[in-house]
Design a protein around this nucleic acid. Structure first.
Length: 234
DNA sequence: CTATGATCATGA
DNA sequence: TCATGATCATAG
C-alpha cells in the first residue's frame, strides 16, 4: 500500500473499504441522497445529461464508495472482492438498461470453463446500487435507492452458466462475428465499442479470420429485474 | 488498443 | 414500447 489508501479516481475523498461491513456502512450514507448532493461532496460537477457522460453515475458511486480497481479487469473493490454495478431504474422500479459485464474474449479463448470464466468471477459478488434514471428527472435530482449485495443463487448461476456455455461454444467454433444479441436467455453478447467503425481481428464463419466489432457480455433486464424486485420485498 | 463506466437512439 | 445495435468518455 503506497498512496493507495484512497480511491484512484479523480478525487481523493473516500478511504478504500477494507471489509464488506465498511463498504455497506458507506452505502448506507449514500443511499437516499441525490446525485447532485453526492457530487457536491466530491466536488464533482453534474453534467447536463448523460449523453456525453454515460459512465458518470458509475464513476460517481465508485468515488463515493472508494473503489480501487481503476480500470483493471478486476472487481471494483479489490480487497473484498466486490463488483459495483449501478442499476438505472425507471418510474416503475424496473431496470431501464441491460448491465455490462465484461468484454467478449477475442484471442484468449484457451482453457475455458464456467468455473474459471471472467463472467462468473465478475458476478460472484455484486453490490447493486439502483439509481433513478427517468429522463424527466434532472440528473442532479435523481435519487440513489437501496443497495444490496448479491451472490448468485444456485438457480441463477445455472441460468448464467447455460447461456455462457452456449455463447462460448459459438466462439470456440469460430463464430464471433455471427453472434447476435438475440442469443442467450439472460446473458447475451452485444457490440461494445466506440462506434461501428472500430474493428478487431476475430473469427467468422467458423475459424475464418475477419475484422469484427468488439463485443461484450451483458445481463438482460429480464435477469436484473427479478433481482431488483426481490431486493425491494426483503 | 483494451479495459473501465455505461446509456443512447432507432426500427420493428 | 423496448430490445438491438451503436455510441460516448477516459485511463493506462
Amino acid at each position: 500500500m503506497t498512496e493507495d489508501n484512497f480511491s484512484s479516481k479523480q478525487t481523493r475523498f473516500t478511504p478504500i473499504p477494507k471489509t464488506e461491513a465498511e463498504l455497506l456502512n458507506r452505502c448506507e450514507i449514500m443511499a437516499g441522497q441525490t446525485l447532485g448532493q453526492i457530487a457536491f461532496k466530491l466536488s464533482m460537477t453534474v453534467p447536463e445529461d448523460l449523453r456525453l457522460h454515460k459512465g458518470w453515475v458509475g464513476h460517481l458511486c465508485e468515488n463515493y464508495l472508494g473503489a480501487n480497481a481503476g480500470d483493471r479487469a478486476e472487481p471494483d473493490f479489490l480487497d473484498i472482492g466486490v463488483e459495483l454495478k449501478t442499476l438505472p431504474v425507471d418510474a416503475h422500479e424496473k431496470p431501464k438498461e441491460s448491465t455490462y459485464v465484461c468484454t467478449m474474449p477475442i484471442r484468449q479463448i484457451d482453457a475455458y470453463s464456467w468455473q474459471n470464466s471472467w463472467v462468473k468471477r465478475k458476478l460472484s459478488r455484486v453490490l447493486w446500487v439502483p439509481v433513478e434514471a427517468a429522463r424527466d428527472i434532472p440528473l442532479a435530482e435523481r435519487y440513489v435507492d437501496n443497495f444490496w449485495i448479491w451472490r448468485p443463487s444456485f438457480a441463477e448461476e445455472c441460468s448464467l452458466q447455460r447461456d455462457w456455455e452456449e455463447l462460448m461454444d459459438r466462439i470456440v467454433l469460430g463464430e464471433q462475428a455471427e453472434i447476435t444479441s438475440q442469443e442467450g436467455e439472460y446473458l447475451h453478447i452485444r457490440p461494445k465499442a466506440a462506434n461501428s467503425l472500430v474493428l478487431v481481428r476475430g473469427m467468422s464463419n467458423g475459424h475464418t479470420s475477419a475484422f469484427i466489432i468488439p463485443k461484450g457480455f451483458y445481463l438482460r433486464t429480464s435477469f436484473t429485474g427479478p433481482l431488483l424486485h426481490q431486493s425491494l420485498y426483503n
